[in-house]
Design a protein around this nucleic acid. Structure first.
Lengths: 229, 229
DNA sequence: GTGTGGTAATTTGTATACACTTTCAGCCAA
DNA sequence: TTGGCTGAAAGTGTATACAAATTACCACAC
């Protein structure tokens, strides 16, 4: 899910970005993440269609998708507003993520193959490099590899429904902000959790993998809120 | 979400069934549940618009909603097909439901008020009546009250995100088929679980509520699969 | 007979016009 | 001034026409 859409006129390297609905989705998502629209703001379909350069039809489609991911809230005959996420909502999000990613880790422990382990180890190494980069941690690389790590486990769990549900919970906004709030110590500890998860998967210890993953997510939640305000 | 309006707990008695998109949603969902469209069948937007008596626009809207709830799968430029649920998918569904409804029960244990308890007790009594109805259990009444019971707990948990996520997991199709597969003994045991949950909520024992609810959902899964084939 | 290419038919994706609902400003009456 | 009514303005919901993409089919070459 590409939420990034820099206003700089980049050559459309991806041929199928021409899809109006996708462009609307990316543009609106970018405007929300970029702060142009703040929580509670009303989103007029006509205004969005102007901003996106497409008609209202794909804009409506994009809004429904964003609503399914809880970025916006749509009330019948009253239009869409940017969702307001209270602290409790985000706590719930982390809680649910912890449960479901724990389940994913447990299943991955039973079903993993050797190739999966190799990939995970590579992720861990790359995250190490990103965390210890000088003069300061490479947040972008950390994010990319962290996402790859969790996605690899999710793939190994081999449950389409679990993947889909988790995808809607791991809002890119939250993940990005979490990393911003991480201190270097937090990042290091996070990757230590990754190492322990890999070890549990290697030993096919489902129970342990579940527990560690839950600890991992809850630690992320703590970091998020400790730096919050 | 609202495919059936059971008389048990309708908040908005507004007969806004005139909404074309809602009618399309209900109609298509009904055709799938009723077996007119079988898993794997292709869903032509034009054909559906004829069947629903509305234009393609609300049909597309309905299809997107159904896709968000995993009733159908939409592939870009290739239309929608009725989702095929393999046994593993349904097992995963129950597993996720167990985790999240357990979480809901735990939170409800902390936040419940007395009115909530009263409602739950009423549900339990009504379910008793439905289960012991002569000459045979009243499945429809059981379903309605069972849904009301779980929804009451979900409301008491007071977590919009949790409610929304669970709503997408508790596909009406599965719930209905589960009840069909229940024996009378299963139904009785199910309501015993309900009683235990209520007792845990009364004592504000979050851990116990969580555990019982997970047992409750897993028992439902067992009943589902034991009668399956 | 089989594989390939190209064209036509079907279907999805998008744009636009119109109908209906909500909202709010303005006005009248109490 | 306040309360409620009315009607216009704005915005969402729906229908339809058109564009783009996919699929099916048939001719043709090998």
């Amino acid at each position: 899910m590409a939420t990034q859409h820099t206003p700089a006129n980049d050559e459309d390297a991806k041929p199928t970005l021409s899809k109006a609905a996708d462009r609307a989705y990316d543009t609106i998502g970018g405007l929300i993440l970029g702060g142009h629209f703040k929580p509670g703001d009303r989103l007029s379909e006509e205004e969005l269609s102007r901003l996106c350069g497409v008609s209202r039809t794909p804009v409506r489609d994009a809004l429904r998708r964003l609503a399914a991911e809880y970025f916006v809230v749509i009330r019948p005959n009253q239009g869409a507003v940017v969702a307001v996420w209270k602290r409790q909502d985000i706590e719930d999000l982390f809680h649910m993520r912890a449960l479901l990613e724990g389940m994913a880790a447990a299943r991955a422990a039973s079903r993993r193959n050797d190739d999966c382990l190799i990939q995970l180890e590579q992720c861990v190494e790359r995250i190490d490099k990103a965390v210890n980069a000088m003069p300061e941690p490479d947040i972008a690389a950390f994010l990319a590899e962290n996402t790859a790590f969790h996605r690899t486990i999710l793939d190994a769990a081999d449950s389409p429904r679990l993947s889909a549900t988790l995808a809607s919970l791991i809002a890119p906004a939250i993940v990005a902000r979490t990393a911003e709030h991480y201190s270097q110590a937090d990042l290091r500890r996070s990757n230590e959790h990754h190492r322990e998860v890999v070890e549990a998967l290697r030993n096919r210890d489902a129970q342990l993998a579940d527990s560690i993953m839950q600890v991992h997510i809850r630690a992320a939640a703590n970091s998020y809120f400790s730096k919050q305000d």
